[in-house]
């Protein structure tokens, strides 16, 4: 009857979002007076698994089977649904990241469980089960009532505080059965950058728009991002022009991010752009047009030419670091 939370691992490691998820699921388990079971799929070290117990996981499971080495949505969803049934779980929590979006809907159909995706707060009540989620691309929150017996939630990244609640749980490794006819995904090629802060994980993001004027002007922006230990991003026109790669595009149709600090340089702040960044805790706008809508979304603003302001900002951060 436990609450179940799926904590993905990245080459055997967890990250900040894993602990946000466990903290969130632990709070829900508390509201419902249930235990929390956290599980991951694929080999993960004992010490790493134990970390999940620091944030409230009463049981920690590592599900293993060689057929699960490649993520096949259908095979993985079956394994997760089987576990939920075995545990008699009434609530299953995912991250609303790429993996969560791949698996949660499939698990939902298997368990006939209603889903609320992109939630950022705890349910306002558990009977009826009502929880608010992001809707209209950040322009509203929708209160979703999940009427099915089993509920699925997916949590927006960087929207819930990590809360320590050590349980001392000892991780268990579980050999699970996988129907080989379900796992049919074959990977033929992988390209992976290592050592770079991922845009979706970054706590600070420095982003450039059309006001950057050309692909050749990005050096001070990249330098500022790296000095702040952040990631770089861009608006849609910039990725459409090919000034920056499309995976840096933040906005409605690009990446939706929620860093602690978003510095928008030369970005006017069209609705579609704000849809991707409005959940940032702080927005700084640097733009030479004082009427640009980005200033309505920002807490701090500089009206000025990006090319002149950026080098000064870089210097100011360098001075701070000394």
């Amino acid at each position: 009857m436990s609450v179940l939370v799926f904590t993905e691992n990245w080459d055997g490691k967890f990250k900040k979002l894993s602990y946000e998820l466990v903290s969130y699921a632990s709070a829900i388990a508390g509201m419902m007076n249930r235990k929390l079971t956290a599980f991951t799929i694929g080999r993960t070290g004992e010490e790493e698994l134990k970390e999940l117990g620091r944030y409230g996981a009463d049981r920690i499971l590592s599900l293993v089977n060689p057929a699960l080495e490649v993520m096949d949505n259908r095979a993985w969803a079956k394994v997760i649904a089987d576990l939920a049934e075995k545990e008699g779980s009434k609530v299953v929590v995912f991250s609303n990241n790429m993996t969560g979006k791949a698996l949660a809907p499939r698990v939902s159909v298997r368990l006939k469980a209603g889903i609320a995706s992109g939630v950022s707060r705890l349910p306002v009540s558990t009977e009826p089960f009502t929880v608010y989620k992001r809707a209209y691309s950040g322009n509203a929150f929708a209160g979703v009532v999940i009427k099915s017996e089993v509920k699925i939630l997916s949590l927006a990244q960087n929207s819930y505080e990590i809360i320590e609640k050590p349980t001392g749980a000892i991780p268990e490794t579980v050999e699970v059965e996988v129907d080989p006819s379900l796992a049919v995904t074959t990977i033929t090629e992988t390209h992976k950058q290592t050592g770079k802060i991922l845009l979706t994980d970054a706590e600070i993001v420095v982003s450039g728009g059309r006001g950057m004027k050309s692909a050749d002007n990005w050096a001070p922006l990249v330098e500022l991002a790296s000095l702040l230990n952040g990631a770089t991003a861009c608006s849609r026109p910039v990725s459409d022009e090919g000034w920056r790669p499309h995976e840096e595009h933040t906005g409605q149709t690009g990446k939706i991010i929620a860093p602690n600090l978003y510095i928008a340089v030369g970005i006017s702040g069209a609705t579609q752009h704000l849809a991707g960044v409005s959940s940032s805790k702080y927005i700084v706008a640097i733009n030479n047009d004082k009427n640009a809508p980005i200033f309505e979304a920002a807490q701090y603003g500089i009206v000025g030419d990006a090319m002149k302001v950026l080098p000064k900002l870089v210097d100011a951060v360098k001075t701070l670091k000394k």
């Binding site: 969803a77 809907p105 159909v109 995706s117 992109g118 809707a135 209209y136």
Partner: peptide
């Protein structure tokens, strides 16, 4: 872009 559910495609496949 209205309900931002990211669910229908995955559900169809299941």
């Amino acid at each position: 872009s209205d309900f931002n559910g990211s669910a229908v495609g995955g559900m169809i496949s299941e």
